[in-house]
Design a protein around this nucleic acid. Structure first.
Length: 138
DNA sequence: GCCAACGTTGGC
DNA sequence: GCCAACGTTGGC
Protein backbone atom coordinates (compact mmCIF):
# COMPACT_ATOMS: atom_id res chain seq x y z
CA UNK A 1 0.00 0.00 0.00
CA UNK A 2 1.38 3.36 -1.03
CA UNK A 3 1.07 6.63 0.80
CA UNK A 4 0.25 10.04 -0.63
CA UNK A 5 -0.62 13.62 0.15
CA UNK A 6 -3.24 15.67 -1.66
CA UNK A 7 -3.79 19.40 -1.37
CA UNK A 8 -7.04 21.28 -1.43
CA UNK A 9 -7.98 24.85 -0.76
CA UNK A 10 -10.53 24.49 2.01
CA UNK A 11 -12.71 27.33 0.75
CA UNK A 12 -13.13 25.33 -2.47
CA UNK A 13 -13.21 21.78 -1.07
CA UNK A 14 -12.39 21.09 2.57
CA UNK A 15 -11.90 18.04 4.75
CA UNK A 16 -15.44 18.55 6.09
CA UNK A 17 -16.73 18.53 2.53
CA UNK A 18 -15.02 15.19 1.95
CA UNK A 19 -16.45 13.77 5.20
CA UNK A 20 -19.91 14.88 4.05
CA UNK A 21 -19.51 12.79 0.88
CA UNK A 22 -19.45 9.64 3.00
CA UNK A 23 -18.23 6.27 1.80
CA UNK A 24 -18.75 7.01 -1.90
CA UNK A 25 -16.09 9.66 -1.66
CA UNK A 26 -15.33 12.33 -4.21
CA UNK A 27 -13.73 12.47 -7.62
CA UNK A 28 -10.41 14.32 -7.34
CA UNK A 29 -10.94 16.24 -10.55
CA UNK A 30 -9.39 19.41 -11.86
CA UNK A 31 -5.77 18.31 -11.71
CA UNK A 32 -3.95 19.67 -14.79
CA UNK A 33 -0.40 18.76 -13.96
CA UNK A 34 1.31 15.73 -15.39
CA UNK A 35 3.30 14.81 -12.32
CA UNK A 36 0.23 15.00 -10.11
CA UNK A 37 -1.75 12.96 -12.63
CA UNK A 38 0.98 10.34 -12.89
CA UNK A 39 0.89 9.98 -9.13
CA UNK A 40 -2.86 9.38 -9.27
CA UNK A 41 -2.46 6.79 -12.03
CA UNK A 42 -0.02 4.97 -9.76
CA UNK A 43 -2.53 4.74 -6.91
CA UNK A 44 -4.25 1.54 -5.82
CA UNK A 45 -7.54 1.01 -4.00
CA UNK A 46 -6.98 1.45 -0.29
CA UNK A 47 -3.86 3.63 -0.60
CA UNK A 48 -3.79 6.14 2.25
CA UNK A 49 -3.77 9.86 1.57
CA UNK A 50 -3.00 12.79 3.83
CA UNK A 51 -5.52 15.57 3.22
CA UNK A 52 -3.79 18.94 3.30
CA UNK A 53 -5.45 22.35 3.48
CA UNK A 54 -3.47 24.83 1.37
CA UNK A 55 -3.71 28.58 1.63
CA UNK A 56 -6.08 28.61 4.61
CA UNK A 57 -4.78 26.61 7.55
CA UNK A 58 -1.75 25.18 5.74
CA UNK A 59 -2.04 21.99 7.70
CA UNK A 60 -2.56 18.28 7.27
CA UNK A 61 -6.01 17.66 8.70
CA UNK A 62 -7.04 14.09 7.98
CA UNK A 63 -6.46 10.70 6.40
CA UNK A 64 -8.38 9.59 3.33
CA UNK A 65 -8.16 6.50 1.14
CA UNK A 66 -8.35 5.83 -2.57
CA UNK A 67 -11.73 4.27 -3.39
CA UNK A 68 -11.66 4.35 -7.21
CA UNK A 69 -8.74 3.90 -9.59
CA UNK A 70 -7.74 6.58 -12.07
CA UNK A 71 -10.48 7.24 -14.62
CA UNK A 72 -11.20 10.10 -17.05
CA UNK A 73 -11.73 13.45 -15.35
CA UNK A 74 -15.41 14.26 -15.81
CA UNK A 75 -14.74 17.99 -15.79
CA UNK A 76 -12.93 17.92 -19.14
CA UNK A 77 -13.12 16.25 -22.56
CA UNK A 78 -9.35 16.19 -22.74
CA UNK A 79 -8.39 12.49 -22.50
CA UNK A 80 -5.03 13.34 -20.97
CA UNK A 81 -6.54 14.09 -17.59
CA UNK A 82 -7.52 11.34 -15.25
CA UNK A 83 -8.25 11.25 -11.57
CA UNK A 84 -9.02 8.91 -8.69
CA UNK A 85 -11.80 9.06 -6.10
CA UNK A 86 -10.99 9.38 -2.42
CA UNK A 87 -13.06 9.14 0.74
CA UNK A 88 -12.45 10.28 4.31
CA UNK A 89 -11.09 7.70 6.77
CA UNK A 90 -10.43 9.67 9.92
CA UNK A 91 -9.38 13.15 11.02
CA UNK A 92 -5.96 13.57 12.60
CA UNK A 93 -6.20 13.87 16.40
CA UNK A 94 -4.60 17.28 15.89
CA UNK A 95 -3.71 18.99 12.59
CA UNK A 96 -0.04 19.11 11.67
CA UNK A 97 0.86 22.50 10.22
CA UNK A 98 3.27 23.27 7.41
CA UNK A 99 5.32 25.32 9.88
CA UNK A 100 5.72 22.24 12.10
CA UNK A 101 6.73 20.10 9.14
CA UNK A 102 9.34 22.70 8.19
CA UNK A 103 10.60 22.76 11.78
CA UNK A 104 11.10 18.98 11.76
CA UNK A 105 14.52 18.03 10.30
CA UNK A 106 13.36 14.46 9.55
CA UNK A 107 10.70 15.89 7.25
CA UNK A 108 12.99 18.25 5.34
CA UNK A 109 12.78 16.02 2.26
CA UNK A 110 8.99 15.84 2.16
CA UNK A 111 7.57 16.87 -1.19
CA UNK A 112 5.33 19.23 0.77
CA UNK A 113 8.45 21.26 1.52
CA UNK A 114 10.59 20.46 -1.52
CA UNK A 115 8.01 20.45 -4.30
CA UNK A 116 5.80 23.11 -2.87
CA UNK A 117 3.50 23.41 -5.84
CA UNK A 118 2.85 19.74 -6.55
CA UNK A 119 -0.75 19.06 -5.52
CA UNK A 120 -0.63 15.25 -5.48
CA UNK A 121 2.57 13.86 -4.05
CA UNK A 122 4.03 10.65 -2.64
CA UNK A 123 4.79 10.30 1.07
CA UNK A 124 7.33 7.82 2.42
CA UNK A 125 6.46 5.38 5.18
CA UNK A 126 8.94 7.15 7.44
CA UNK A 127 7.37 10.55 6.79
CA UNK A 128 3.91 9.13 7.32
CA UNK A 129 4.87 7.74 10.73
CA UNK A 130 6.48 10.98 11.85
CA UNK A 131 3.46 13.06 10.86
CA UNK A 132 1.12 10.61 12.62
CA UNK A 133 3.24 10.82 15.75
CA UNK A 134 3.13 14.62 15.63
CA UNK A 135 -0.64 14.48 15.18
CA UNK A 136 -0.97 12.40 18.33
CA UNK A 137 1.09 14.99 20.15
CA UNK A 138 3.92 12.79 21.35
C1' DG B 1 -2.85 41.18 -2.44
C1' DC B 2 1.83 40.38 -3.68
C1' DC B 3 5.17 37.84 -5.70
C1' DA B 4 8.43 33.81 -6.20
C1' DA B 5 8.57 29.37 -8.09
C1' DC B 6 7.61 26.70 -11.62
C1' DG B 7 4.94 24.34 -15.30
C1' DT B 8 3.04 25.03 -19.93
C1' DT B 9 2.55 27.16 -24.39
C1' DG B 10 3.84 28.82 -28.68
C1' DG B 11 6.90 31.44 -31.88
C1' DC B 12 10.99 30.91 -34.12
C1' DG C 1 14.40 22.07 -29.57
C1' DC C 2 15.12 26.49 -27.33
C1' DC C 3 13.41 29.96 -24.64
C1' DA C 4 10.48 33.99 -23.69
C1' DA C 5 5.92 34.89 -22.33
C1' DC C 6 2.35 33.66 -19.74
C1' DG C 7 -0.65 31.41 -16.25
C1' DT C 8 -1.18 29.16 -11.87
C1' DT C 9 -0.10 27.74 -7.27
C1' DG C 10 0.45 28.73 -2.78
C1' DG C 11 3.25 30.87 1.10
C1' DC C 12 3.67 35.11 3.22
Amino acid sequence: MALWLMKSEPDVFSWDDLVAKGSKGEEWDGVRNYQARNNMKAMAIGDRVFFYHSNIGKEIVGVAEVCALAHPDSTTDDPRWECVDIRAVEPLPRPVTLAEVKDTPELADMALVKSMRLSVQPVTEEEWKIVCRMARGD
